[in-house]
Design a protein around this nucleic acid. Structure first.
Lengths: 236, 236
DNA sequence: CGCGCCCTTGACCAGACTCAATATTAGTGG
DNA sequence: CCACTAATATTGAGTCTGGTCAAGGGCGCG
């Protein structure tokens, strides 16, 4: 299970280096006896769209995807959640999407009412939601305006910590390489990027042909030229 | 300016009928002397991507769009904001997108630090953000999986209060009609729906040809068959 | 009345989808 | 360890939706 450790670790986010907003209260709350920890296998459903939203979830370890379905079966993965993120926090009384694990995961399950009644923890929730919104904005840009190549390149670069983001440091070593674990099938990637499985496959093959990546396993990819991939994202 | 009144009023959201979470504290805060009200004309910039995010904005009246740009000029409108919504609430130190008015607007400008230091108002922020996330999820589904027709139909139905949503009441009168004010140019609609201006125009013309809508003015549309449009959204 | 901006329409093109065949991988049991 | 199977991924050929480029129309405003 160790292979999921760094995956979806929200490489690009400013994360919790924000000293101004203390996390102490949250940590204390999270350890209270009312909070239980749940383990899931890979590809387990956590909740469904329309279920009463009485709980709030925090991912401790692993990866979870949120997706929506159209009546004819089309699926859109709206978010992929990494560790230390909340999910299932909705405005209304029912979940607006489905949640399913990608990898075996550890999830903290919190009572929604209890959480909402605790003003001191709203800060934590708020910070999580704001990060989430920024990621959703990026994703809207990807879905609305990027080509298939740009979508896949943007997807790959997400897995490389500190690269492909605003203050990208550039290559750190001689070799600008990185091995990444997608932890998603081609179908899941396609549904996340708003493409078909065939298009995803073709783009990946093409990147391979052009020497930018090599496939070590179906979902383990060695990016042999991180900068090269980055220049395919459309963002720079 | 009255014509913007109901537009983008977030017809489909559960809104603030939630008695459990009091709005009193928020209202009080909003009236404090530190909070100023700003007026903008149509198509005025409010802030730019990358600007230091020292303020938080609440739209009182009008309509605002948030958009991102790619270096080559491609634009994606990531959100359209209606009255009683917050915007410019980010996790990091800089805005992640641009904000521009669509119509003449009244905006409440709040100091970010002050807001974050007030636990009693985090509840308000949190509620706004959660609604925002649900709308972004819907939009990801639209951008990732819907056809041009479905996108435009989904866009149009947003303007009809109580219709096209989960608990849709169906037609209330004999005539299933509604006149809506888009308050957006074709280009803005295209950038919102991830299409080109020409495609938007063609779809609208086609809906007109099929007798589902009539154009009263470029951005005033009479939907002559709301149910008919609704069945084009892909959602049912 | 005329100018400029936005919108519409048409013809053509291309990127991504569909359908179908084949290849590869992961998993199972001998 | 290998053979077999089922699931997943790749590749190819052909189609189609939506994009591009270009021309024309309509509306608002000076």
């Amino acid at each position: 299970m160790a292979y999921t450790e760094r995956v979806w670790g929200n490489a690009g986010s400013p994360a919790r280096a924000n000293g101004a907003e203390s996390e102490d209260g949250w940590q204390e709350f999270a350890r209270s006896p009312r909070v239980k920890t749940q383990r899931y296998g890979a590809h387990d459903a956590i909740f469904y769209e329309g279920d009463p939203a009485e709980r709030v979830y925090e991912l401790i370890e692993g990866a979870v995807m949120l997706f929506k379905l159209l009546p004819d079966g089309r699926r859109q993965v709206v978010e992929v959640i990494g560790p230390d993120s909340l999910f299932g926090v909705v405005a209304g009384r029912h979940f607006d999407c489905n949640a399913e694990t990608l990898t075996p995961s550890v999830v903290r399950v919190l009572d929604r009412r209890e959480l909402e009644a605790s003003p001191e923890f709203q800060a934590h929730v708020s910070r999580c939601l704001r990060r989430q919104i920024e990621r959703l904005h990026d994703h809207a840009l990807l879905l609305g305006r990027k080509s298939a190549f740009e979508r896949v390149a943007s997807f790959l670069i997400r897995f490389v910590p500190g690269r492909g983001i605003n203050g990208c440091a550039g290559p750190q070593n001689e070799k600008d390489e990185e091995v990444i674990e997608l932890a998603m099938t081609r179908q899941e990637i396609a549904d996340y990027l708003g493409l078909t499985i065939e298009t995803v496959s073709r783009v990946i093959s093409d990147l391979k042909r052009r020497g930018l990546i090599t496939i070590e396993k179906q979902d383990r990819i060695r990016i042999t030229d991180v900068c090269g991939i980055c220049h395919q994202t459309g963002t720079r």
